[in-house]
Amino acid sequence: MSVRQIRLKTTGTTAKTSRRVLLAAFAGASLTLPLDACSAEGNTSTQTSGTGADAAGLTKVRFVQEWPVADGFWIPWVVAAEKGFFEQAGLDVKIITPPNVAATMQFLGTNEADLAFSTSLDVLTARSQGVPVIGIGKYGNGNNWGLMSKSKKPVTPAELVGKNIGTYNDAWSNAQLSIMLGSIGKTIDDVTLVSADSSTVPLLVQNKVDVITGITNAEGSELESLGVNDYSIAYSRDYGAPDAPVFLLAGNEKWLSANPQAAKSFITAVLQGLNYAREHQQEAVDIFMKTYPDAQTAEFTTLQWTATAALFGDAKTAVEATAFTQQDTTWQELIDVAVKYDVISSSLKPSELYTNTPLGA
């Protein structure tokens, strides 16, 4: 495939969304690096739940995150820790900030962590390499990846032909873009990809591209933080891409087998934190900023949490464990696309990638 590609340096990004290019870079990377290269004690930071976490009778849980800098996606469990929901569930949860993005699956797969906040693609890629990790709950109601523009209406695939698209040029973004173009018989060769060194957002703000790739609660939130409140988004799911949530909760298979009640209690406490944070959004942001004051701005965190909370539906309706339920059909769609576009080398069974048992299913 010959793809027209331009690389531009971008400036003026918020610290958080520069994460997207690094997540993309590691999406298809091998997970067989020696663990001592990334798990030295001094290279991770942690938050421990509650004030009495050393009390007898609490089950210790090591919960590693998807990114080496805290972000607003973490708010449900940060709130759960601060409010004592984990302790009430009989858990001593250590929230681990990894040293780099590749470390999340490494930690989870090699007994350096019990549970993880990660991405569907990371679990799929790790599992395809034999890493004993498995999804235990989706985070959100669907695929919120798409093409963002400053036009009043979302762009259509036909309007993309000949246009400049700001992207990270990772395998997953290219696959979803290819699906959208394929819906009208076109290919990625019919557009020009403009790769950003960090965030795609400045490319759109500075009119260097026609559209950018991104998700609502990352690039979308950054656009709003820069005053672009009327952007539109064309979702890839509307043009045949898998409607699989970008993020999920995952677990180490051996730990899950040995600690089924702890896994269920963890989900219960996270749901408490999620619902509390949705009902008390400003307090939730304040708790996050108190816990991680240097991670990102309060303004961006507020926008990001507002967009993330919206992924769980009406704020007046409490989220139940069923909202985390995963399905064979969704995973099969993800597997098929990942194989077709060489994200993974061979197919897997959906049953190898997830379990709903911690949800009480």
Rank of each mutant, 00 (worst) to 15 (best):
T10E: 14
I96S: 04
S118V: 10
T119I: 07
A196K: 04
T187N: 05
M180Y: 10
V319H: 04
I75C: 00
Y354L: 01
T119S: 15
K163P: 02
T302F: 06
W145L: 08
S351W: 03
E283M: 07
S225P: 08
S49L: 03
K9W: 00
V123A: 10
G313D: 08
P99D: 03
P202F: 06
D71R: 00
A321W: 01
N229Y: 05
A315H: 10
A126W: 02
L31W: 01
G84W: 03
S173F: 03
Y341L: 08
E224C: 04
E299Y: 02
A116R: 07
L353C: 05
A80Y: 08
Q282M: 10
I215N: 13
V61F: 02
A309F: 04
L359M: 07
G140H: 08
K150V: 09
T308F: 12
L348I: 11
K16W: 07
T291V: 15
G214C: 14
L91F: 00
N217E: 15
V194A: 09
T44W: 00
P68N: 14
L91I: 02
D328R: 14
F86V: 08
A218F: 11
K254R: 12
D71C: 06
Q88N: 14
T51E: 09
A24Q: 10
K150T: 14
V61I: 10
R7C: 05
K254Y: 09
K254V: 13
P99H: 03
G72N: 08
L23R: 09
Y276T: 06
F63P: 00
T125W: 03
L226D: 03
V191R: 12
A277H: 07
S257E: 14
G90A: 03
P157E: 06
I75T: 04
M148S: 12
E253A: 11
Q88W: 02
A103C: 14
D114E: 11
A318G: 10
A40C: 05
A310N: 12
A284C: 02
S351D: 15
E224N: 06
G52Y: 03
A70K: 01
I95G: 01
T17D: 09
A234Y: 01
A56F: 06
A263G: 13
S39R: 08
D122N: 13
A323I: 00
D197L: 13
K208R: 15
R19W: 02
V285T: 03
N143P: 05
S183P: 05
E253W: 00
T187S: 14
R278W: 06
A234S: 13
N229A: 09
I233T: 07
